[in-house]
Write a protein that binds this DNA or RNA. Structure first.
Lengths: 209, 209
DNA sequence: TGATTTATGTATTGATCAATACATAATTAA
DNA sequence: TTAATTATGTATTGATCAATACATAAATCA
């Protein structure tokens, strides 16, 4: 089935990639249409014909972001057998992903519109959902580890998941403030140092001396 | 020395307080002049006469924010004798401060303009400086604790300070995403669970992979 | 008193925002 | 061919942005 009218003269996927970069660097509201069209090397009517609106373009950019950088961070959470390694991977991959550009860029999901009541509420709420989804993913991974006998049943999965999600979110700010890859990795390691005390469970003693 | 011309008909401090609330809820760029003047109950010429510009108003609002909420968080860092208690206080006070409004609001310094290259670069860079200042404050507090013999000389102050600053930043995102006071307190406690492993002395480091 | 100074309210400025109207170009279907 | 369909480039829309011009009001100073 060939397409009917005049064929598109630009690569839709490459244009989307460029748009994602702009949204990643500038956030949703700060990224202007003129900035987007310049980066995508198209005129605004072509953008609206291909993507619908700035908001729809952003949603596609978020999907692309999650399938690339985000995928490497959260994808393996369920496939890694050991729960500690799984959570450790999230923080480790976060450090690597957030520092793959220079200067460090942090997370689009966290930084693009951090205020629910901010500029465009729909966007803020959509990103909030993604963040909550990731938070729940950690919590469910911990609950699975309890079922499998890896963690004690007394583990406060909600609190621990909130904690690691908080670290992951905070790493975005640290990255944006110029942290190096090594500094981000160090933060990840520091955060994982809490693992044993947190899931020590009843009777598990970690006393020194 | 009495003032010369027509006296101001509004309370400058109360107006500034209202402006701070708007910036806190909406961020710098998302807070429009019409929104600010409405909250401050003045017209824009009065605002410009009293504060200079939107940017100058924001800087004053940041100062007010730091003297109120921020003061309670970071002020006692140096006056609390035990380093662990000092850092613990920062996270504990953060949990209380971020959840004192409903819904939870997080930190103006973190959320008002999280992207250095975002909307107004000068604002982003100013807030980045404040965040870096807080990060350094923790680091210096830890170095002091080494000097006083409370912590082993092998403590990686930079890494530990980055870690706790990251948690503190991440709590802003969690708060904005609707976390309750108890959830924020739980996160603070989880983060403090890493303290003993982290300052346990040489050879106590854990790697994630 | 009259001159000076500062604040206020109305109305508006140029700039920029996201989104389109419109005429034209390039393709397929008949 | 001709009609239908889709994309492109130029130019523009109304809305909103931060910031002011201007006339007037209310105070102090001489």
């Amino acid at each position: 089935m060939a397409s009917r009218g005049r064929p598109r003269t630009f690569d839709r996927q490459k244009a989307l990639q460029q748009a994602m970069e702009v949204f990643w660097e500038r956030g949703f509201d700060n990224a202007s249409m003129s900035e987007l069209t310049r980066a995508m090397a198209i005129n605004s009517p072509s953008l609206y014909a291909a993507f619908g609106s700035k908001e729809a373009l952003f949603r596609e950019a978020v999907q692309l972001y999650m399938s690339e950088g985000g995928g490497g961070i959260w994808g393996p959470l369920d496939s890694i057998d050991c729960a500690r390694d799984a959570v450790g991977h999230v923080l480790h991959a976060t450090a690597l992903t957030f520092s793959q550009h220079s200067p460090s860029r942090g997370c689009l999901i966290v930084l693009a519109s951090p205020q629910s009541q901010g500029g465009t509420p729909e966007i803020g709420e959509e990103l909030e959902q993604h963040r909550n989804h990731n938070r729940c993913a950690i919590e469910q991974r911990l609950q699975r580890a309890i079922k499998e006998g890896e963690l004690p049943a007394s583990t406060d999965c909600r609190a621990v998941a909130n904690y690691y999600a908080t670290v992951q979110h905070g790493m975005s700010i640290l990255a944006r403030d110029g942290a190096t890859r090594q500094e981000l990795l160090d933060v990840a390691n520091c955060a994982m140092a809490a693992w044993e005390p947190l899931i020590g469970g009843p009777g598990a003693s970690h006393d020194t001396e």
